[in-house]
Design a protein around this nucleic acid. Structure first.
Lengths: 190, 190
DNA sequence: CTATATACGGAGGTCACCTCCGTTTATCAA
DNA sequence: TTGATAAACGGAGGTGACCTCCGTATATAG
């Protein structure tokens, strides 16, 4: 007989397989068609019914978050490496450059970032883009390199603002320049 | 008989009336429901058919642009006044503050700004938000107060980035702070 | 008053979203 | 192996928004 606690079975093999297929299909379709791609196209390209898609990912956001979680985690990883290798201010600057490169290749992320309100879907555990950015900024502040009188995340938002829509070539260079302007603007007055 | 040139009649009175009604309804509905409000609600609130809406404004963008044109023009006006009354850098800073206030009350504009690629729908004639911002920035640069090594419009984009989505209270204060950071960051190194 | 260019309206085709539930299937215990 | 059963599937179909098309209505000019 079943114990008073719900019996835990490991998920069915087909379920797991379909989840993977969906994520692959989603990645391809989002890249091709942008973050508003039709979910039904994703489902059919994955070879499953639309119902299955919704069972696994109850909202578009949830799907986007899963698809880009790896990328987010890499970005967070990089921050740790940079922190170890460089002085605080340089680490911050270098990471912001990565961030811009990142949104350059995955514009889709903007949607994921935007709608959650948080700067990233929280991975099961471990650092988020938000926490990493905050950390880098606070280190630089502690070192006396900058004065932190804004929410660090707003700096990311500013960069995303420049990336957003501005599809004209050169937006990326402009965003990179903005990094330096922002950092210069945060310098303590001497 | 008709001349070889098309005969120009002034628009029918009902057409003009409906256009006005549509714009009023649109303003109300956009304010209430955001920039993705159903166009059919706008039409019905204006007491006209959906076909009439589309005849007057062929896209959502066109409608948004018309509805907010007055506001844009005021913003452009203000720039002129500030230019006359204040030294270049102060004028720039003051105008950016207005810009933030502006997107605070009319978040809807973000959509209008975004999708056109330009920072504003061009009024029939006269200055646009883009031209005004560029002008203010160039004056400040000419006075030697700032070094202009980005597209001035990108500064607006950065501010919009902070405004965007960030509905948590306090975003407006953060955006105002960002203005100072940006300006400080543009200062010539001395 | 009439002719006609102009404007109106909304029915209906299209498309995407999302839910619901009858059917299928993987898993487990016997 | 073989049921029994929980888990998962799939897609039909309701909903809502977009936008076009064209038969009908009407303001205007002469």
């Amino acid at each position: 007989m079943p114990s008073s606690e719900a019996v835990i079975r490991r998920p069915r093999a087909d379920a797991e397989r379909n989840r993977l297929r969906l994520m692959e299909a989603a990645k391809a379709v989002f890249t091709e068609r942008g973050p508003n791609a039709a979910l039904e196209e994703i489902a059919s390209r994955a070879g499953v019914g639309i119902g299955t898609l919704y069972r696994h990912f109850s909202t578009r956001q949830a799907l986007l978050a899963e698809v880009y979680r790896h990328a987010f985690e890499q970005l967070a990883e990089a921050a740790i490496q940079l922190s170890l290798a460089l002085p605080p201010l340089d680490a911050l600057r270098a990471w912001l450059r990565l961030f811009v490169d990142y949104i350059a290749t995955k514009q889709v992320v903007l949607a994921a970032l935007g709608a959650t309100g948080n700067a990233a879907p929280a991975p099961a555990s471990g650092p988020t883009v938000t926490s990493v950015m905050t950390d880098l900024a606070e280190r630089a502040a502690a070192a006396g390199d900058i004065v932190l009188n804004v929410d660090p995340i707003d700096l990311l938002r500013a960069l995303m603002g420049v990336a957003n829509v501005n599809n004209g070539p050169g937006w990326q260079a402009n965003a990179q320049r903005l990094i330096d302007i922002l950092i210069e603007g945060l310098r303590p007055t001497r």
